[in-house]
Design a protein around this nucleic acid. Structure first.
Lengths: 244, 244
DNA sequence: AAGTGGTCTAGACCACCCG
DNA sequence: GGGTGGTCTAGACCACTTT
């Protein structure tokens, strides 16, 4: 089904602890010690620690040196992830859809070329979509991808998700994205497409997505209607032992 | 000076690699192998991997199994971090300041009490500030903290940063925050405080910050003017070996 | 086939918290 | 002082990419 997805021992421990906590461990209750878990699963302590590292990273548990590992106080809103529009909507319990789509190959031009790190004269695939959530217009999205990385993409765009096509047909897996989020007000034409009053406030999101080799694969500018959409994200303190 | 801040061997390797990359390694250039670095520093490979884990996490390098570790393509907009307003502004090269501040102890009430996980009848410290960037109003911020966690806070609020006081006087270190970001338009009174036209678009940010034990320490509602402020963040694909 | 990163082991010592 | 998490070692085998 999914793509390789090797299950490690640390994964098994993490899932076990997820289940144990969900089954009824209250906030601030103590988990088994790392050495106990290592014995129980007949694995090394380091492997147990990798499982706990991830749970701590997600805010599910916290650790106190010399004392133990404990369940965090609050149920966590899932950490912010790179996700497609469809995944994002489903995670919110909204049914995603698409009103219209057009795709064509055009010259990159200065702005798009700069964002993707290609020459302004290079070809890019331009995809424009109006996305819906529960059948209401939600977002106008303009995506641009270097044609060189996705030859023939325009002919493969069915009703499938763009990210699905990228992974299946081009072995491109997006790993990271930089986003800049601004607020704006909608010009009458765009407001009409989103079925909101002219000059309504909206999010303007500029996203550059990169694959596992750090290559810019997609640059997208999206307008989300402000009355229906919100960003939810979880941030952490860094804690590098640096200076400056 | 700082708070303990033990320097690990992994930290030294990371700083070394940071410097090497900054000194002139181009995107997609190959770093030394993990085994070479382990020999060079006379440490174990696992320790080298911990340093590379962090650099990969920050988007500075990427790794390809069977091939090597490489410098990422783009200068990274630093991964999104929990930071105070002052830190945030300084990171953007803007001088932070404060126009006005008021602090008082009030009853939590339903909404604030719910956000902080305390009784609506409990006391909270309410801090209202108008924040400036390069001497222009940037943000109106209303913060609420459970009085029980920060007794006497109102008397200790000088010109110091709130987060600094929390750590120094109360040993509260904020580790994580959940944020919801919406767009809104500013009522005339608030617009006047931010020195923008009435009904200008703005960010409305609701943030709950937690300490290392997962206790809600601060709930804040902030209004950022939309013409001067933008969110910049970097997101990654998750890759939990889960399902559902 | 050789080399690389990914996972894992069975220990060790240290720093810290608690009874 | 005993137990806990934090760091580290010197190996090992596997999966993968490259030549």
């Amino acid at each position: 089904m999914s793509t390789t997805a090797r299950v490690t021992k640390a994964d098994l421990v993490r899932q076990h602890l997820d289940a144990v906590i969900a089954a009824g461990l209250a906030p601030h209750e103590k988990l088994p010690t790392e050495r106990e878990l290592a014995d129980e699963f007949s694995i090394s302590r380091l492997t147990v620690r990798r499982a706990l590292d991830q749970l701590e990273h997600e805010g599910v548990v916290y650790r106190v040196q010399g004392a133990g590992t404990f369940v965090s106080d609050k149920a966590i809103t899932k950490s912010f992830e790179l996700s497609s529009f469809s995944e994002d909507m489903r995670a919110r319990g909204i049914v995603p859809g698409s009103l219209s789509m057009s795709a064509e190959v055009v010259g990159a031009g200065a702005r798009i070329g700069y964002a993707l790190g290609v020459s302004p004269a290079d070809d890019v695939v331009h995809i424009r979509r109006v996305r819906t959530g529960d059948d209401a217009p939600m977002c106008i999205e303009n995506s641009y991808l270097p044609e060189r990385l996705v030859p023939g993409l325009v002919d493969r765009l069915g009703s499938d998700s763009l990210y699905g096509v990228l992974e299946r047909d081009f072995s491109l897996r997006l790993e990271r994205a930089d986003q800049v989020i601004k607020v704006t007000v909608l010009e009458p034409e765009l407001a009409a497409e989103l079925q909101v009053p002219a000059f309504s406030p909206a999010f303007l999101v500029m996203r550059t997505a990169f694959d596992n080799r750090g290559r810019a694969v997609e640059y997208a500018e999206s307008l989300y209607r402000g009355d229906r959409y919100s960003y939810e994200l979880s941030v952490r303190r860094h804690g590098r032992h640096d200076d400056a």
